[in-house]
Amino acid sequence: MIAHALFFYFFSIIAIVSAIFVIVSRNTVHAVFFLILDFISIACLFIMIGAEFLGMMMLIVYVGAVAVLFLFVVMLMNVTEQKLSWFRGTKKTGHIPVGLIIGTVILLELIVIVGGWRYRDSFSETEFLSFNSEFTNTHMIGNVMYTDFIHLFQISGIILLLAMIGAIVLTYRKREGVKTQSYIKQISREREDSVQLKDVEFDKGVKLDD
C-alpha cells in the first residue's frame, strides 16, 4: 500500500508541477511538451484507480492526437518565444482590464458554487455501483454507452461531425489553374498511347499529331 501511495504522490506532483509550467514557460513548444507530460501523468492516475480503459483513451486521444495537433500549430505558426512586453509595461494594451473583469466574475461564480455545494443525501455515503467482477471496465463502459446513453453518444458524434464539416467549409476554397495529377490517367497509360516510332527522312522534320 505504501508503494501505491508513493506512486500516487509521484504522479500527482508531476501533474501539478507540469500544469504550472504549461502556463509559466516562455517557450510555447515547451508549454505543449509540459501539457503532454500532464496528460500522461493524469492517464497514469486513471490507471492507478483501476480505470485502465479511461487511462488508455486519455493517452490515445489527448496525447496521441490532440497534442500532436497543438504541437503542429505551435511549431508552424512560429510563435515559439513569447515576449511578455505588456507585462513589463512597454506596450499599452487593453487586455489587462478585460482579463481582470472576466477573472473576477469566474472567481465569484466559483465562490458561489463551492459555498453552496452540498451533497445529495443519497451521495453523502459512499455507494458502490453494482459491480460485476466478471466484466472488465471496457465491457461496463460499452454496455452503458450503447444502451442507456446511446442517444447522447450519437448526438455528440453528430456534433463533432458538424464541427468538422464547418471547419472544412470555412477553410476550403477552390483554386483555379492548379495542376494536379489524375491517378486514373497515370495508371491507365499504355505503351501505345505514349510511345510512337517514326521513320525520319533525312533533312526533313517530323510532325507529331498532338
Binding site: M56, I60, G64, T136, N137, T138
Partner: peptide, 15 residues
Amino acid sequence: NVGILYIFAISSLSV
C-alpha cells in the same frame, strides 16, 4: 485487460 489499447497508445506516442 487493455493490452491492445496499451500498444496502440504507446505507438501513438512514438511520434
